[in-house]
Amino acid sequence: MSDSAGSKAMRLWPIAFLAGIAILGIVAAAALVIFSGWYNVAADVPHTRAVYWLMQTSRDRSIEVHAANIVVPDDLADPKRVADGAGLYAEMCSRCHLAPGMERTEISRGLYPRAPELRRGVDLTPAEEFWVVKHGLKMTGMPAWGVTHGDKLLWDLVAFLQKLPELTPDQYRALVKSAPSHEEMMGSEADHGHGDHAHH
């Protein structure tokens, strides 16, 4: 080793030492938080704003990235799709996400994070909504409906979600009433195969 290389290594040594100490400190602090049980996971005590931001931002970015290549059908405004979606929504979603004219339910009051009230609208594109409905969301109580429902039905649901924020309670009830029963929809989907799984 030349003199100049040796002196350079001697100069870098304190920096490397301090960086190592800092990394060890971070790992020790994380281990302390995890294994001491200090963080309260109870659903009736909300996350701090920093933790909530971290989780929300990670979730939003993940949805955005994973839904980026989903091709949205061009018939989401089709009244038949919207009506079928209304039936599915009433059956599968309304207990947690509520609906126009609906009182808050016990489950909607106790879930954490709260299921958003979808009649107020959401900041998701139709492709992102489809991805969330199909795959669910970890640690939120949102199930992966794609396990039991094909893509056609899930797109019907997304079609309905585009209309939901404009609906009055009467319009919502009328739409749900006009929808086929859940069993009929599941049966018709079984007849036509289990939907298209090509996009994701």
């Binding site: 009736d44 909300p46 996350h47 909530y52 954490y112 994070p113 709260r114 299921a115 958003p116 009230e117 107020r120 609208g121 959401v122 900041d123």
Partner: peptide, 9 residues
């Protein structure tokens, strides 16, 4: 606070 966290920013 939990209710408010869930609304749109």
């Amino acid at each position: 606070n939990a209710d408010i966290q869930a609304i749109r920013d």
